[in-house]
């Protein structure tokens, strides 16, 4: 699913990033970064949904090659987080939904989590 479509489903706002053309193949809903690192398996096509707006979230995405992050409950990160995202070409979105609601909505639209993605492959 295109990132643009996901933005619509989550009624999200773009905080950093220009293009929403990226194809997203799996979703990871996590707040603990080690969990993110063990969950994400598809380079360049995962979306991270998280409550954590700390710069380490973007750092983790950079390391794991996650192209996009969506923050929850309308949270917007500090400049340091945004700068890091810009530098690494990572798209940042923000939705007013909770992590639960956002996950539910995307799952309903057919996007898989990490184990379903692995099985499908």
């Amino acid at each position: 699913m295109k990132l643009g479509k996901i933005k619509e489903i989550l009624e999200a706002k773009v905080i950093v990033g220009a293009s929403l053309e990226r194809e997203i193949r799996m979703i990871c809903a996590c707040d603990l970064m080690s969990d993110v690192l063990s969950c994400v398996q598809s380079r360049f096509s995962s979306l991270l949904l998280t409550n954590l707006i700390h710069p380490q979230t973007v750092r983790t995405a950079e390391i794991a090659e996650i192209p996009a992050i969506c923050f929850m409950r309308g949270k917007e990160p500090q400049d340091l987080t945004m700068d890091l995202a810009k530098k690494n070409g990572i798209v940042l979105l923000s939705t007013s939904f909770s992590l639960y609601e956002a996950s539910g909505r995307l799952y309903k639209e057919g996007l898989p989590g990490c184990s379903e993605y692995r099985e499908a492959k």
Partner: peptide, 19 residues
């Protein structure tokens, strides 16, 4: 046993909402 996204997805489909 599921990860957060997959469990929530199923709970959501079963009618447990986040709002």
């Amino acid at each position: 046993k599921m990860c957060a996204f997959e469990l929530v997805g199923r709970l959501y489909n079963a009618g447990i909402s986040g709002t």
